[in-house]
């Protein structure tokens, strides 16, 4: 799957590309407005990561051009502005998601998975691997066909793990993902440990494999 990263800060686009490479994405980087317009015109992508403030133009205009051409790429706006107006305008113009800088790469990766799934498997809301079946619409999980009784947080946690398979997730990245918009006031990372423990217990009770590995007691990895 191909992803275009429109981002003028080279160090950041490098990190993103590096992280996504391991998720088996092919990444292209456009450093400015013109390069982005050129690449969009010439190639097809599954997802475009779009920075709004570019040195030679507004990223929102790229979004407009995409929509005018009826392109089907998923678009995630990554902005340093974190302005509510930008978010609303971006989503109104047809962006699929909005992520404010700074963000965790695992968070970005999870969003990309969601966007591509939504675009690619239109109508199919299930995610399947080994004995797990996740219904993303009903927000339910089945292990070996048996419904797992998960709390909302446990469901979010499992989905986050599944979307970041084989990657190390720090407690902080997990805590911040779970806290969502309330991140700035959420400083208790120990809660993650409890959530993971409960999730593992429920999966084990349902007869599922324990894929969640602790990394030096500081992070976790969903190893498949």
């Amino acid at each position: 799957m191909k992803i275009l990263i429109v981002e003028d800060e080279e160090k950041l686009s490098q990190s993103i590309a590096e992280y996504l490479k391991h998720e088996n994405y092919v990444c292209d980087v456009a450093e400015n407005f013109n390069e982005a317009m050129y690449k969009i015109g010439g190639f097809d992508y599954d997802c475009i990561l779009l920075d709004i403030s570019l040195p030679d133009g507004n990223g929102l205009n790229i979004l407009k051009a995409l929509k005018a051409d009826n392109k089907t790429e998923g678009v995630i706006i990554i902005s340093a502005k974190d302005a509510i107006d930008d978010k609303i305008i971006g989503l109104q113009l047809g962006a699929d998601d909005y992520l404010a800088k700074p963000f965790h790469l695992s968070e970005l990766s999870a969003r990309i998975v969601s966007v591509i799934r939504r675009r690619r498997f239109d109508g199919n809301n299930t995610l399947k691997f080994n004995e797990f079946l996740i219904d993303t619409l009903a927000k339910t999980v089945y292990v070996n066909g048996k419904l797992l009784d998960l709390t909302k947080t446990q469901y979010d946690l499992l989905l986050y793990f599944v979307m970041n398979k084989n990657r190390v997730l720090s407690k902080i990245a997990i805590a911040e993902h779970l806290a969502g918009d309330n991140t700035e006031f959420f400083d208790n990372f120990d809660i993650v440990y409890a959530h993971v423990k409960n999730l593992k217990k429920k999966i084990a009770q349902a007869g599922g494999t324990d894929y969640i590995k602790s990394i030096y007691g500081m992070g976790y990895k969903f190893e498949v």
């Binding site: 992280y19 790469l105 720090s170």
Partner: peptide, 15 residues
């Protein structure tokens, strides 16, 4: 935000 974003992404890669 930008230096923080870069630092964060590098930390994520380091993990």
């Amino acid at each position: 935000q930008m230096p923080l974003a870069i630092m964060q992404s590098k930390l994520d890669l380091l993990w």
